[in-house]
Design a protein around this nucleic acid. Structure first.
Length: 266
DNA sequence: ATGGTAGAGTGTCTA
């Protein structure tokens, strides 16, 4: 029986779970996180150091792990009906089709999908077209969850608005901001998915990712590309959300910050 | 246009 207790859900592109397992364990304790979706775990399942998280009371599900990406869900409020999606797309051979994954599970009565949307590389690259098709496929799959308490969280590799980019001129010939990518993201909103974090973290100059180069974080030159989208019923339960900017500071940080949303009891 | 940093693993590839 799915409960409707309050749930704190976090998503974080951790950029290697092995190199930052101590930070992950600290994060879930510091913020009392119930469900943590991870992206870019960058390791095979048998390489992941999960004992510490299990000792803290978390169940773990991982998928699609290779040296470049991989996703996971860590939950202490149940981990049921685990499903893996997008482990190979028609028309795209390896390694392109192995690039990205999604993993979903029911945690505390909420269907949670951890997604790593393909990067796309360059607008004229096959990976870019793969990214758009991947988003189309995810959207079609996601529509069946709209009537439930559901969230799609992760690294979307799309900056939906100009204010989500520190300098649009620098992205004139780049992915993440092209009209087709933004339309693909907007299509989720048109379907009824709600960005539950932006109202609590209004821009401009509010980001979730800062490149390691050129002291981008220190100068707050970043992108907002990590999102928590909620179905209408899940979004109605969100009363608080924030970006853990401090996690991005200092030596040994991921290039992304964790994004966290609180759902009250239904 | 290029390069800058970081993580995977030894060759570069990826972001």
């Amino acid at each position: 029986m799915a409960s409707l207790g309050a749930v704190r859900i976090a998503t974080w592109n951790v950029n290697s779970l092995r190199s930052r397992i101590d930070r992950v364990e600290a994060l879930v304790q510091r913020h009392d996180v119930d469900v943590l979706a991870l992206q870019e775990t960058k390791a095979r399942e048998d390489q992941l150091p999960l004992m510490g998280l299990q000792a803290l009371g978390y169940d773990v599900a991982v998928a699609g792990t290779n040296q470049w990406n991989g996703v996971a869900i860590i939950s202490r409020v149940g981990l049921e009906d685990v499903q893996v999606g997008f482990d190979g797309m028609p028309g795209y051979g390896e390694p392109v089709a192995a690039e990205s994954r999604a993993i979903g599970a029911v945690c505390g009565g909420v269907r949670v999908w951890s997604v790593y949307v393909p990067n796309g590389r360059k607008p004229d690259d096959p990976h870019y077209h793969y990214k758009l098709e991947w988003l189309r496929t995810l959207r079609a799959e996601a529509q069946q969850w709209l009537d439930a308490d559901a969230v799609i969280v992760g690294d979307w590799n799309v900056a939906p608005r100009d204010e989500d980019v520190f300098d649009m001129a620098q992205f004139a010939k780049s992915t993440h901001v092209t009209p087709p990518e933004r339309a693909a993201f907007q299509a989720f909103l048109d379907d009824g998915w709600v960005d539950v974090v932006r109202p609590h973290t209004p821009g401009p100059d509010v980001y979730t990712y800062w490149d390691y180069y050129r002291q981008r974080f220190e100068r707050n030159r970043g992108l907002r590309i990590d999102f928590i989208l909620g179905s209408p019923s899940a979004a109605a339960r969100v009363h608080h959300a924030f970006i853990d900017i401090d996690e991005r500071a200092g030596h040994g940080a991921s290039d992304h910050a964790p994004v966290i949303a609180d759902l009250d009891g239904g």
